[in-house]
Design a protein around this nucleic acid. Structure first.
Length: 109
DNA sequence: TATATGACGCCGT
DNA sequence: TACGGCGCCATAT
């Protein structure tokens, strides 16, 4: 186990923590920002360990704005509720107006 | 070391 | 955008 691999999850958490309130980003965007553009799946995988972290995983969706990870939350609609609480319109597990709430770490960060 | 898994993304249709 | 299929890559077992 090399240190670099350990940092991968941490890096994902670092970026995810910096997602502004009321904004969302995609797994690919985070992966791209980390220099692992082809490891988008790992970003989501890393989120599995975000349960004990202060990571707002509900603000991370796939590039279509689809809440593909909602099944990993306690409730079936918890993720959507959290997003709506932040002023993000979510219908049928999909974020509406994605462009208006999208937050790209490579640009904003 | 090898095989299976997956909260994705891209491409073709 | 929708759907199906393939590829990528770090973890888990």
């Amino acid at each position: 186990m090399k240190p670099e691999t350990l940092n991968f999850f941490d890096k994902v958490y670092e970026v995810a923590k910096q997602i502004p309130y009321g904004k969302v980003t995609s797994y690919g965007a985070i992966a791209n920002y980390l220099g692992a553009a082809r490891s988008a799946r790992m970003v989501g995988y890393a989120m599995n360990g975000s349960g004990s972290k202060d990571v707002p995983a509900h603000r991370v969706v796939n590039r279509k704005g689809l809440l593909t990870g909602k099944h990993h939350f306690d409730g079936t609609n918890l993720m959507q509720q959290l997003l709506e609480s932040e002023g993000i319109e979510v219908i049928d597990n999909q974020i509406q107006n994605l462009e208006s709430v999208y937050w790209d770490p490579s640009k904003e960060l």
